[in-house]
């Protein structure tokens, strides 16, 4: 029998102590002040109807459960309405933290197939939602130009947009090997 309290150390290979540092560095600078009050979960429109819990996501990020967070579907249930960010009593940029973790997820090859498709459309047309035949007709009916005055009707502009996405690495990110089989 001992009168001292035994020390329990969470020692797991699942914990990456640098994960939260990366999130802080990318801009969610107050995330460590989280008191797990649950305001973020209580105001979340996605959380109202799914098992997505913003508070849990924040806790896992703080614990450094990097792989679990980055591979999680929940990360993609946030509609980025910013209500949690507005209401957080610790002024944590919750939505920004989610966007930062999403960037990390994509960088690690975790991307939903629909999101990859939208990115490919952006790469090929300059629009994530490009024109289609029905809307060409509707534009004409309305007395508008059949194609909007965007990259859709300007080859040079599209070339420039595509060159930018090459230079930032977006083309490789979306079409590269990391994304294969996803």
């Amino acid at each position: 029998m001992t009168d001292s309290i035994s020390r329990e150390t969470i020692d797991s290979k699942d914990i990456d102590p640098e994960f939260v540092d990366e999130i802080v560095k990318a801009g969610a600078d107050r995330i460590r002040t989280c008191i797990q009050c649950g305001t973020c979960s209580s105001v979340c429109p996605s959380g109202r109807r799914t098992a997505f819990r913003t508070r849990e996501l924040m806790r896992k990020a703080l614990l450094g459960l990097k792989d679990e967070v980055l591979s999680s579907h929940d990360l993609w249930l946030c509609a980025t309405c910013y209500t949690c960010l507005e209401r957080c009593p610790r002024q944590i940029k919750v939505t920004d933290a989610i966007i930062i973790m999403r960037n990390m997820a994509v960088d690690h090859g975790f991307m939903l197939p629909e999101h990859r498709k939208a990115s490919q459309k952006l790469l090929s047309t300059g629009h994530a939602v490009p024109i289609d035949d029905a809307n060409r007709e509707m534009r004409k009916d309305l007395g508008l130009e059949e194609l909007p005055p965007t990259t859709h009707s300007n080859r040079k502009a599209l070339d420039q947009v595509q060159e930018i996405m090459k230079r930032t690495g977006f083309k490789d990110l979306i079409e590269g090997e990391k994304m294969e089989g996803n």
């Binding site: 939208a118 965007t150 300007n154 502009a157």
Partner: peptide, 18 residues
């Protein structure tokens, strides 16, 4: 010659520098 803005919830979520 403008393009997609690009969308804050998607493209910003995939690659913020792009």
């Amino acid at each position: 010659g403008a393009s997609c803005c690009p969308a804050p919830g998607v493209i910003r979520s995939f690659d913020e520098p792009t």
